[in-house]
């Protein structure tokens, strides 16, 4: 099982981060549930044809962020949601992403309300209440 991940080398985004982003997304949209097991490092690495240490690094970073947890001898699982970031850190991270989004919107000539509508639509699509 490869979680349906796709990676593109030759990207500005390092491979370990591409994997992180896609697992984060899978958890956010509910294709990966709390308590679900992730494929072993070696298996995922071989199915994506990448170095196992890269997969291990993605898992480690996601464990540090509290999204995944390792259970001794059994593997890596999606963790119960818990808050590892301070309020300031959460705001800082989201603000950064929001700024990036705004930059692009300005570039494409969108208005503030156009952008808000897009965000609302995307939010609905992820089916998060």
């Amino acid at each position: 099982m490869s979680l349906g991940l796709t990676i593109s080398p030759a990207s500005e985004v390092p491979i370990f981060r591409q994997i992180m982003q896609q697992i984060q997304r899978a958890v956010a949209v509910g294709t990966l549930h709390v308590g679900e097991q992730l494929p072993p490092v070696r298996t995922l690495a071989e199915s994506l044809v990448i170095n196992p240490n890269t997969v291990a690094r993605s898992y480690q970073e996601l464990m540090r962020e509290g999204l995944l947890e390792s259970r001794a001898g059994r593997g890596v699982f999606v963790a119960e949601r818990r808050q590892v970031f301070s309020e300031e850190e959460k705001t800082r991270r989201l603000r950064h992403s929001a700024e990036q989004l705004c930059h692009e919107a300005i570039l494409f000539g969108l208005s503030g309300s156009d952008l808000t509508k897009l965000v609302e639509a995307a939010w609905k699509e992820l089916r998060i209440a």
Binding site: P9, A10, I15, V49, I50, N51, N53
Partner: peptide
């Protein structure tokens, strides 16, 4: 082929 290198090299 740097994309290959990126895939497998430590």
């Amino acid at each position: 082929l740097l994309s290959d290198v990126e895939r497998v090299a430590d």
